[in-house]
């Protein structure tokens, strides 16, 4: 018999195609609002999710459209926890080098901005291997 689903979380699996970004970010925004965040915070969470899923599609899967991206939104008492899994080339915490915005302004260039947005807009981000897949976990604390 299958275990009963966790009532505090749900999962979505999308093809590794950017056309589904809007669907996922819309869901992340609504989930953030449902978790009690205000509109501005919910918008930031949705951008962080956009950047994380885009990273998976463009970098982990190198733009190949035939893979899957799995997203879980989990409502904890004190936070919204978002996990994104892929089976491509994964990132680890030690690989993450965030550009310094001050240096960026002095020497503008493309690239590296997505991770910076994720780290600024979420309270925590972690990358690790999990059960043969790569996992990105992002946490946004909900208002007390």
């Amino acid at each position: 018999m299958r275990a009963a689903p966790d009532p505090e979380s749900f999962r979505l699996v999308i093809p590794s195609q950017t056309r589904y970004l809007n669907l996922v970010t819309g869901l992340a925004k609504r989930a953030s609002l449902a978790a009690g965040m205000d509109d501005a915070t919910a918008a930031k969470v949705s951008i962080a999710v956009d950047e994380a899923v885009t990273n998976v599609i463009i970098h982990a899967y190198r733009g190949e459209s035939t893979h899957q991206v799995e997203i879980e939104l989990r409502f904890r008492e004190e936070a919204l926890e978002i996990r994104i899994w892929n089976t491509g080339t994964g990132l680890h915490d030690e690989d993450v080098v965030l550009p310094d915005p001050k240096e960026y302004v002095k020497h503008p260039r493309k690239g590296g901005l997505g991770l910076l947005l994720m780290s600024r807009f979420m309270d925590e981000i972690h990358f690790k291997d999990a059960d043969g897949r790569s996992e990105c976990c992002m946490i946004k604390r909900t208002p007390a």
Binding site: S46, I47, D50, P108, K110, L113, G114, L116
Partner: peptide, 12 residues
């Protein structure tokens, strides 16, 4: 909204 992809386009 605009993601970092769009900011990169302006930056370019």
């Amino acid at each position: 909204y605009i993601s970092s992809a769009g900011l990169g386009a302006i930056m370019g």
